[in-house]
């Protein structure tokens, strides 16, 4: 196992500021995520969490600062060049972002058809889509439309679409928002399974501490097909926590540091054992 220092940088923000109508959504944010690492971003509504993910994907351009993805500076890249970078990034959108007019199978195979670098036949695309849907246990929904599925199922299809290209970086925008606890657990378990099975770097935006804690302290064992609880210090998948407040990074550290923090704003996101 390579040490964190040797691992390739997957995502790096250098003093990134993003504004909308003179309002700063991200203000001087810097962090780095390496191969196989996880990053959890906490923050209240409107604190810049989604902006951070969209900037990482190149959907938003920073006003200042630089964004590096897989070591390449994407800050000034044109949309056509960004498509090449995005073929290695999967994203689950907060609203799912599934195309209403396409079936579930068409939704999941969409990136295989449209992103650069995938020269697959229709049969190969179908097989890959089925495999991704099997991973989220929704292989029976191939011919359905998104409107026929429940909120949790749509979120799972979103995960299938995000991982169908086997990306090196997966971004999850509030994957459990608005879901019941059982469905929310299923979703986070899938994120853990995907992370450990494929070794992708993971960024998860959330405001639910239990999801973040589970991500940091769980490991998927393919040999037993079980998710086990491990100590965060044992875990070779390092998880870093960021806390955003009004676009500014007010905390960056490990789970232990997060739980030890006495910052009143940071404390709001931490559910301590009584």
């Amino acid at each position: 196992m390579s040490s964190p220092g040797q691992r390739q940088s997957v995502l790096r923000f250098e003093r990134v500021t993003v504004s909308f109508d003179e309002q700063k959504a991200l203000d001087d944010v810097s962090f780095e995520l390496r191969q196989r690492e996880s990053l959890v971003v906490f923050g209240a509504a409107g604190s810049g969490k989604t902006t951070l993910l969209k900037t990482a994907l190149g959907l938003l351009k920073p006003d200042s600062g630089r964004v590096f993805v897989f070591g390449r500076d994407i800050t000034d890249l044109k949309e056509q060049d960004l498509f090449r970078i995005r073929s290695n990034i999967g994203m689950l959108f907060q609203e799912g972002g599934l195309f209403d007019s396409l079936t579930i199978e068409e939704n999941v195979s969409y990136p295989l058809e449209n992103l650069n670098g995938f020269h697959l036949t229709e049969e190969e695309r179908r097989a890959r889509s089925e495999e991704a849907l099997r991973f989220v246990e929704l292989e029976h929904t191939l011919d359905k439309f998104p409107s026929e599925l429940s909120g949790g199922m749509r979120r799972r299809v979103g995960i299938a679409r995000a991982i169908v290209t086997e990306p090196k970086l997966v971004l999850y925008d509030s994957p459990t928002a608005g879901l019941d606890p059982i469905t929310a657990f299923t979703i986070v378990a899938l994120i853990v399974k995907q992370r450990d099975l494929r070794g992708a770097a993971t960024v998860m935006v959330t405001h639910r501490y239990q999801d973040a804690h589970f991500l940091a302290t769980s490991r998927y064992r393919p040999e037993t097909d079980q998710i086990e609880t491990v100590s965060p210090t044992d875990n070779d998948v390092e998880t870093t926590f960021l806390v955003l407040r009004d676009g500014r990074l007010v905390f960056q550290g490990t789970l232990a540091e997060l739980e030890a923090s006495r910052d009143p704003y940071v404390e709001k996101f931490v559910k301590r054992e009584e």
Binding site: Q80, F93, Q94, G97, Y110, N114, R161
Partner: peptide, 18 residues
């Protein structure tokens, strides 16, 4: 507009389509 507010436009860009 519906596609925009449900993030389908962003998804389209993220998935390689202008």
């Amino acid at each position: 507009g519906s596609m925009k507010v449900t993030e389908q436009i962003d998804a389209m860009r993220a998935l390689g389509t202008d």
